[in-house]
């Protein structure tokens, strides 16, 4: 276990080491060793998910992930004489996520909501206990997780949901501002009310 005890961070980012937290954002970094068949299976899975976006709908709907990635590492390049090219005995799966709200809640969501998806991603990893029950799955992730030495977010106080809402709101505000200039104070009242009604989910 290489993640320190949950720190004393204040805010929703809870349940992980202080190195993994910047504001509301949490970093998760997980490596696992992949069985031989994973080197065929995982690229196929990645391609399928890339080509058929509806398959990642639930991942998108979970709404607390900014960015995530899965990468299969099979070899490392040479770096001069002292570090020759290394072909790894097994493929290794690297997973990272940038998310918000607590670590426990995040893994619970993976277990309960993306049960099948999590199994597809980690089925070929040694030691994967299954996405449910959550207890052993959390232990597995904990065991294979690394704490960041430095973690950075460009907008640490914003969550993924806030970002998406703001990105939808900003053009609506700009658009309404264009119109508002031309409206008389009497016309403005109705238009303002309609604008707020339309935009209320984004506020």
């Amino acid at each position: 276990m290489t993640v320190s005890e949950p720190g004393t961070a204040v805010g929703t980012a809870t349940g992980t080491g202080a190195g993994n937290i910047d504001g509301q954002a949490i970093a998760i970094t997980v490596f696992s060793t992949v069985k031989w068949w994973g080197k065929h299976w995982l690229p196929l899975l990645f391609t399928t998910l890339r080509l058929i976006p509806p398959l990642t709908r639930d991942l998108r709907k979970l709404s607390f992930i900014h960015f995530a990635r899965w990468t299969l590492i099979r070899e490392l390049p040479a770096n001069g004489d002292t570090a020759p090219r290394t072909r790894l005995r097994y493929p290794h799966l690297f997973f990272e996520s940038n998310f918000n709200d607590g670590w426990e809640e995040y893994i619970d969501a993976f277990s309960y909501v993306l049960t099948r998806g999590m199994s597809l991603f980690w089925a070929s990893s040694y030691g994967f206990p299954g996405a449910l029950p959550t207890g052993p799955f959390k232990d597995y992730i904990h065991r294979n997780e690394l704490e960041a030495a430095h973690y950075y977010s460009a907008y640490p106080e914003a969550t993924a949901t806030m970002v998406r809402k703001a990105l939808a709101l900003a053009p609506a505000v700009a658009d309404f501002a264009e119109r508002a200039v031309r409206l008389s104070p009497a016309e403005f009242e109705g238009a303002w009310s309609a604008f707020l009604t339309d935009a209320q989910d984004l506020l």
């Binding site: 990645f46 899965w70 460009a154 703001a166």
Partner: peptide, 20 residues
């Protein structure tokens, strides 16, 4: 990268901070 997930893939950092 094998698979990359981005919640708002077309927004630059600048666009995000301005919108916030």
């Amino acid at each position: 990268t094998g698979l990359f997930f981005a919640a708002y893939p077309r927004a630059t950092v600048q666009a995000v901070t301005a919108a916030l």
